[in-house]
Structures are given as structure tokens and as C-alpha cells.
């Protein structure tokens, strides 16, 4: 894959971060739905899987999604815990920004190389 050579790990990482953001957003959206089971992405496992498969984030996602184990189970069967979800979301957003920064650096390097400055 061409983007794989250009951006290395960071392109896949960015895709996976985006997928994880969707999953956590789903959990937050279903905070009041009875019997909803919160799910999350095991990021390092997903990244490993994606690298084994040559950088495809789609299949890696399926293999690394797991149900969250609640700290304290609630009576309505919902396993969303707002504190957990909010920290996970914040952490994921920060990691997304770091991936963007790495990509930005790579693009800058390439642009400078192309311009011959």
C-alpha cells in the first residue's frame, strides 16, 4: 500500500483511533439504554492485527473489540460507566492528536524534500 510506505504506522493508528472514538461515542450515546453493553477497542491488539494484515484497519477492528467489564453492575443491565467512558474518550482524542502531529511531521519532511529546500 502506498500510504503505508509514506506514513508508516501512523496512518493505521489514526484510522483505529477514529474507530475507537466511534465506539466510545456509542457507549456515551447509550448511557441511558437498558441492557446496553459497553464495548471498547483494545488498541494495541488492533494495531498488531492491522500490521499483520498489511495495514487494513477494518478487519483488525473486528478482532480487537471487547465488552467492558463494569466496576459496579447496575440494575437495568447497562454497563456504561460515565467516568470510565469520559477518560477513555479524552485519552483517545489526545492520542488521535498525537498521531496527527506525527503525520504532520512526516508530511513536512516530505514536502521539504520535494521542494529541495
Amino acid at each position: 500500500m502506498a500510504s503505508e510506505k509514506l506514513f508508516g504506522l501512523h496512518a493505521t493508528a489514526l484510522q483505529l483511533r477514529s474507530q475507537r472514538m466511534m465506539l466510545i461515542a456509542s457507549n456515551i450515546a447509550n448511557a441511558a439504554t437498558p441492557n446496553y453493553k459497553a464495548r471498547d477497542l483494545d488498541f494495541s491488539k488492533a494495531l498488531d492485527l492491522a500490521q499483520q494484515q498489511g495495514g487494513s484497519a477494518g478487519q483488525a477492528l473486528e478482532g480487537a473489540v471487547a465488552y467492558r467489564v463494569p466496576v459496579q453492575s447496575s440494575l437495568d443491565g447497562n454497563t456504561v460507566e460515565m467516568a470510565t467512558e469520559q477518560t477513555a474518550f479524552a485519552e483517545n482524542a489526545l492520542a488521535y492528536r498525537s498521531s496527527l502531529a506525527f503525520l504532520q511531521g512526516r508530511i513536512g519532511t516530505l514536502t521539504r524534500a520535494l521542494k529541495g529546500e
Partner: peptide, 14 residues
């Protein structure tokens, strides 16, 4: 009464 709506990719809304 809230209900989960899930798509093929496993993303869910309500």
C-alpha cells in the same frame, strides 16, 4: 423507552 440501534460495523446509537 430507549432502544439501541446498531449498524454493521458495531457502532451504536439510540
Amino acid at each position: 423507552v430507549f432502544r439501541t440501534v446498531m449498524d454493521d460495523a458495531g457502532r451504536a446509537t439510540v
